[in-house]
Measured scan of single mutants.
Amino acid sequence: KLATQLLVDLAEGCHTHHFNSLLDIIEKVMARSLSPPPELEERDVAAYSASLEDVKTAVLGLLVILQTKLYTLPASHATRVYEMLVSHIQLHYKHSYTLPIASSIRLQAFDFLLLLRADSLHRLGLPNKDGVVRFSPYCVCDYMEPERGSEKKTSGPLSPPTGPPGPAPAGPAVRLGSVPYSLLFRVLLQCLKQESDWKVLKLVLGRLPESLRYKVLIFTSPCSVDQLCSALCSMLSGPKTLERLRGAPEGFSRTDLHLAVVPVLTALISYHNYLDKTKQREMVYCLEQGLIHRCASQCVVALSICSVEMPDIIIKALPVLVVKLTHISATASMAVPLLEFLSTLARLPHLYRNFAAEQYASVFAISLPYTNPSKFNQYIVCLAHHVIAMWFIRCRLPFRKDFVPFITKGLRSNVLLSFDDTPEKDSFRARSTSLNERPKSLRIARPPKQGLNNSPPVKEFKESSAAEAFRCRSISVSEHVVRSRIQTSLTSASLGSADENSVAQADDSLKN
């Protein structure tokens, strides 16, 4: 292990032709098999893994070397290190390495390699500790012929580059190093199909959405987006994914797998022009299946994007999809995704031109529960009313008269009656009930004795009459309010007539 670390330190600071010789020695160290011998017992696995620490030291050392060589000349050094790393990870899946030390190597290698970024000039870069990406002036992410390196360097940008540029090249004859992302992409596909350690798979799935944002990485080298989509959909639809995973937390289920895969599918929607129609349908189907899991909100957001990006695919699945959405409970976490999906859909009339009455009724059935102001915040309630109004205007004229009683009944049950079921009123009724029952229970537990009763009969009569009056008032709060309003209006009217009579009498006395 110490000798391997010494080789790594020497290679990191070497800029001459001896660098390749040092890498040859490190490569021989990495070539050791990580498969346990067949006769190895389970209690000896930890000791055997400790004997392979030099392999881990070599791989982690290459990660440090690549981070240094990416910004220094010659660029061919970075290319050689990158290829060695990718080849080593491929061996893991070729020979099915399952030892804990092998999983640790893959975890740290993917953690580093999935941080690679590219700008519009195809320059590769890595983020620093502050998250700012520094791009290399010597390494690009696409394949290029050595003699055409300078031509590639002087080509115009596709868009303004992001991030601070690296140091300027030493001279005009500098050759750019090619670090094609397709090599890593193929290893990522192998990981999605064969990885057995949940920690490694979770890391890859968590980092892929951010990497897919940099389309330069994908399009400048032959990366098959179709295969990526197929691998992701197979993970969700195939039963073998959960069987092969180990190291998963207790209670791990298909729902947890959906939570990890759906963000990658959402990021892949922007590549729909490069996906086969069959793959697009598979993607939409997987998102529909996710509606029954805890990732339902993410799936609804993804389907909203699909309705804009892939209208030809979503239009066929939309009638059944809208009916499925009615089975989702009206909760605060689902309110905004569902209502925004319906609001977006209302502005795309070509998608729902074939809707029948059942689909329009489903839209109103989804939106009406969110009009309850005692359960949802003001934004959700306003958005629900907006969706109902928009869809009522957009639905066909023959359907409107049939939906009017349905909508008014839903609004009455969710908006008007919600004020009668407020917690304050319920607590008031509970308190009044307890007050009504309390005197009775006290009389049963403690019967009054005439000799020891010091309270006069008049006081008892007053208290009983007050309790009886309170019971009468607490029967119905709404009736009490109505009666008080009527009494107030009658009182004001009587006072007004009394004032008029007094004024008339005063005038008569003055005349006399």
Results as ranks from 00 to 15, higher is better:
Val81Met: 02
Ala231Ile: 09
Arg106His: 00
His77Ala: 04
Ser196Tyr: 10
Leu242Pro: 04
Pro74Ser: 03
Pro165Ser: 04
Pro222Ala: 06
Leu201Val: 05
Pro100Asn: 05
Leu85Val: 08
Phe219Ala: 10
Gly125Pro: 01
Tyr93Met: 00
Thr72Met: 14
Tyr93Phe: 02
Leu99Trp: 02
Leu176Trp: 11
Thr154Pro: 13
Cys229Phe: 04
Val86Gly: 03
Ser136Tyr: 01
Gly156His: 10
Lys240Ile: 06
Cys141Asn: 02
Trp198Pro: 03
Ser237Asp: 09
Leu52Tyr: 07
Ser87Thr: 12
Val59Phe: 05
Lys193Phe: 06
Pro209Cys: 13
Ser76Tyr: 10
Leu52Ser: 06
Val140Gly: 05
Gln67Ala: 05
Leu205Thr: 01
Lys129Cys: 09
Ser234Thr: 12
Val133Pro: 07
Leu232Glu: 00
His88Trp: 01
Tyr138Ala: 04
Val200Gln: 00
Thr154Tyr: 12
Arg246His: 10
Thr57Glu: 12
Leu124Thr: 05
Leu60Trp: 09
Ser49Asp: 12
Pro180Gln: 06
Leu183His: 12
Leu217Asp: 02
Leu116Gly: 02
Tyr214Trp: 08
Gly238Tyr: 09
Pro239Gln: 14
Pro164Arg: 12
Glu243Ala: 11
Ser178Gly: 13
Ser224Asn: 10
Gln194Asn: 11
Leu217Val: 03
Leu66Gln: 01
Thr79Lys: 10
Tyr138Thr: 08
Val187Phe: 01
Leu188Gly: 01
Glu147Arg: 11
Thr241Arg: 08
Leu52Asn: 11
Phe252Glu: 02
Arg186Asp: 14
Ser104Tyr: 09
Leu232Tyr: 00
Ser230Trp: 04
Leu176Arg: 12
Glu145Tyr: 10
Ser230Arg: 06
Thr154His: 10
Cys233Leu: 08
Gly163Lys: 08
Ser136Ile: 01
Tyr214Ile: 04
Ser120Val: 08
Thr98Tyr: 07
His77Asp: 06
Thr162Tyr: 11
Asn128Phe: 07
Leu228Ser: 01
Pro127Phe: 03
Arg117Ile: 01
Leu73Trp: 13
Ser234Glu: 10
Tyr93Lys: 01
Ser224Lys: 10
Val200Ala: 00
Arg117Tyr: 01
Val132Lys: 14
Leu124Gln: 02
Arg244Gly: 05
Thr220Pro: 02
Gly149Ile: 11
Gly166Tyr: 15
Asp226Gly: 09
Arg106Gln: 00
Arg186Glu: 14
Gly206Asn: 11
Ser196Trp: 14
Ala102Pro: 00
Leu62Gly: 03
Leu184Met: 08
Ser159Trp: 10
Gly125His: 02
His92Trp: 00
Cys233Asn: 03
Pro180Gly: 03
Ser211Trp: 04
Cys223Lys: 03
Leu228Gly: 00
His122Ala: 04
Thr162Ile: 14
Ser155Pro: 10
Thr57Phe: 05
Ser196Pro: 06
Leu73Tyr: 12
Val179His: 02
Pro164Tyr: 13
Arg106Leu: 01
Ile218Lys: 02
Trp198Glu: 01
Leu236Pro: 02
Glu195Ile: 00
Cys191Ser: 04
Lys152Cys: 10
Thr72Arg: 15
Pro164Thr: 13
Thr79Met: 14
Thr68Arg: 11
Tyr97Met: 02
Ser211Ile: 13
Leu115Gln: 10
Leu121Arg: 07
Val59Ser: 04
Leu208Ser: 00
Leu188Asn: 00
Lys56Leu: 06
Pro161Phe: 14
Val81Ile: 06
Thr162Arg: 12
Thr68Leu: 04
Leu121Glu: 13
Glu195Pro: 00
Ala168Thr: 14
Ser120Arg: 15
Glu83Gln: 11
Phe219Trp: 04
Ser51Glu: 10
His122Met: 03
Gly131Phe: 03
Ala50Arg: 08
Gly156Met: 12
Leu212Val: 02
Leu183Asn: 10
Gly177Ala: 14
Gly251Leu: 04
Glu210Ala: 08
Pro100Gly: 06
Tyr181Leu: 04
Leu228Thr: 01
Arg246Asp: 07
Asp142Trp: 02
Leu73Lys: 11
Ser196Asp: 12
Leu184Asp: 01
Gln90Phe: 08
Leu63Ala: 09
Pro164Ile: 12
Ala50Tyr: 07
Thr68Met: 04
Thr220Arg: 03
Ser155Ile: 09
Ala118Asn: 03
Arg246Thr: 10
Phe219Tyr: 09
Leu121Pro: 02
Cys223Leu: 03
Pro127Ser: 06
Asp197His: 04
Lys153Gly: 11
Thr162Ser: 12
Pro157Val: 12
Arg134Ile: 07
Leu116Val: 07
Pro209Lys: 12
Leu176His: 12
Leu208Trp: 01
Pro180Phe: 02
Thr57Leu: 06
Thr162Gln: 13
Ala173His: 08
Ser178Asp: 03
Pro222Lys: 06
Leu121Gly: 08
Leu242Asn: 04
Glu210Lys: 05
Thr79Ile: 12
Ala173Met: 13
Cys191Met: 03
Leu188Met: 08
Asp197Lys: 01
Leu115Tyr: 12
Thr162Trp: 12
Lys94Ala: 13
His122Cys: 04
Val86Asn: 04
Arg186Pro: 06
Ser51His: 09
Ala78Phe: 06
Glu243Ser: 09
Val216Lys: 08
Thr98Leu: 07
Gly166Arg: 15
Ser211Val: 14
Ser237Pro: 03
Leu189Ile: 13
Glu83Met: 11
Cys141Gly: 02
Tyr181Pro: 02
Leu203Met: 12
Ala248Val: 12
Val132Ile: 12
Cys223His: 04
Gln90Met: 09
Leu188Ile: 12
Ala50Ile: 07
Leu212Phe: 02
Glu147Ile: 12
Tyr138Leu: 04
Leu116Ile: 11
Leu158Ala: 14
Tyr93Ile: 00
Thr220Val: 02
Arg134Pro: 03
Leu60Ser: 15
Val55Ser: 02
Leu183Pro: 11
Arg207Phe: 02
Ser196His: 12
Asp226Thr: 08
Leu208Thr: 01
Asn128Ser: 05
Glu53Val: 07
Pro209Trp: 03
Ser159Gly: 13
Met235Cys: 03
Leu158Phe: 11
Thr162Leu: 10
Glu195Arg: 00
Ile65Cys: 04
Lys193Thr: 14
His88Gln: 02
Ser159Gln: 10
Val187Trp: 01
Thr98Arg: 10
Gln194Glu: 13
Cys139Asp: 02
Glu250Trp: 06
Gln194Cys: 11
Leu183Glu: 12
Leu70Trp: 02
Leu236Arg: 01
Leu121Cys: 12
Thr98His: 09
Ser49Met: 09
Glu53Gln: 06
Val200Arg: 00
Ala50Trp: 06
Pro74Ile: 00
Met144Pro: 10
Thr154Glu: 13
Ser96Met: 09
Val140Trp: 03
Val187Tyr: 00
Thr57Asp: 05
His88Asp: 00
Ile105Asn: 00
Ser230Ala: 12
Ala78Asp: 00
Val216Gly: 06
Pro161Arg: 14
Gly251Phe: 04
Ser224Cys: 05
Ile218Ala: 04
Leu192Lys: 00
Asp54Gly: 02
Ala231Leu: 10
Arg117Met: 01
Glu250Asn: 11
Val216Ser: 09
Lys240Tyr: 11
Arg80Phe: 02
Gly177Asp: 04
Arg186Tyr: 07
Ser104Ile: 08
Ser224Gly: 05
Glu53Pro: 02
Pro157Phe: 10
Glu147Trp: 09
Ala75Lys: 03
Ala118Ser: 06
Leu115Lys: 13
Pro164Lys: 12
Met235Ala: 02
Leu116Gln: 04
